[in-house]
């Protein structure tokens, strides 16, 4: 007999155990991820890229700024220069590997900081409710009144070029949207029955936050933050493309793209290489983020 019966009674009787539920939840997430070939593939590419740029000094055949004018703009496949050389005769492969360190760093750091800062502020706003919530969300609205690229460009344009300034301006751009997501998720979870129940049984605010709200809130905020990494990579390299961000002669993909614009007539393939790197990174991050969202069953 394969007839199954509702387990409704058993579920009702047992007190909710967050840790245990989490365990099975994460196992289910893992299983769904393992089935998602696109996400796995993109994740693997990202890992490979991360490893390559992390060990760039060991992997790269030349230093990122070594070059001679004599050997400038050699085509792809030149002996000794697998991906050719740039407009100043520097090895493209080496520069791409080293440039990735800056691009990834400037792309990911703002999102990470914004996740911590914006996430905390949003959770506080959502949990506090009332006037505090109102105040925080109204300030957030102001930053929402700027198109994101404009805000990044304006702030880092005022601050001037430099890695720190680029990171700071991007962080300012990403904090408000993360606050919004964190606030709405927290408010949602806070109003759920079991948080109400926890409050009714006399659990203090602290324990409600730690035990009930945090585990349910961090997942969606994290997924949202990962979805920003792709954009962040593009805008970060875009800032360097505009001459904000990383200063020459240091390699950075956006900056390389800009300096190679003069080469589009002579070596178009080489000129587009840094862009392909940015594109690949961004696509992979977006696919992985989508996969995570699906696997973790987070509604957008």
């Amino acid at each position: 007999m394969t007839t199954t019966y509702s387990s409704g009674i058993a579920e009702d009787a047992a007190p909710p155990k967050v840790a245990e539920n989490d365990d099975t939840y994460w196992r289910a997430v893992g299983r769904r991820l393992m089935r998602d070939k696109v996400t796995l593939f993109c994740g693997a590419i990202l890992m490979l890229m991360a490893a390559l740029i992390l060990f760039a000094p060991l992997v790269a055949p030349y230093g990122p700024t070594d070059g001679s004018i004599v050997r400038r703009l050699k085509p792809i496949g030149t002996p000794g220069h697998l991906l050719g050389t740039d407009e100043l005769g520097r090895d493209m492969l080496s520069r791409l590997l080293h440039g990735g360190r800056y691009s990834w760093f400037v792309g990911i750091t703002p999102v990470a900081i914004a996740f911590l800062v914006g996430g905390s502020i949003g959770i506080i706003a959502g949990f506090a409710g009332g006037k505090i919530n109102m105040a925080i969300m109204r300030v957030t609205d102001v930053f929402y009144a700027f198109p994101s690229v404009l805000l990044a460009v304006a702030v880092s344009g005022s601050l001037g070029a430099g890695i720190a300034n680029a990171i700071m301006s991007l962080t300012i751009v990403f904090i408000p949207p993360i606050i919004r997501v964190a606030e709405s998720v927290t408010t949602g979870v806070r109003n759920l029955d079991y948080a109400e129940a926890a409050r009714a049984t006399g659990a203090g605010a602290r324990s409600i936050v730690v035990v009930h709200i945090l585990p349910n809130v961090l997942g969606p905020i994290f997924v949202y933050a990962t979805s920003l990494v792709g954009v962040s990579m593009i805008v970060a390299s875009g800032l360097s493309f505009l001459g904000l961000g990383i200063k020459p002669p240091d390699p950075e993909w956006g900056l390389m793209l800009n300096t190679l614009r003069s080469a589009i007539y002579s070596q178009p393939m080489i000129a587009t290489l840094p862009g392909i790197c940015i594109f690949m990174t961004s696509v992979c991050f977006n696919f992985v983020s989508d996969g995570l969202r699906t696997a973790m069953d987070v509604r957008a």
């Binding site: 792709g230 954009v231 593009i234 390299s237 875009g238 493309f241 956006g254 793209l257 614009r261 589009i264 000129a271 587009t272 840094p274 862009g275 392909i276 940015i278 594109f279 961004s282 696509v283 991050f285 977006n286 696919f287 989508d290």
Partner: peptide, 14 residues
């Protein structure tokens, strides 16, 4: 997804 991931300044160059 590819569309939202394209560095459009690069696409312009291409």
């Amino acid at each position: 997804v590819a569309g939202v991931s394209v560095p459009h300044y690069w696409l312009g160059m291409v």
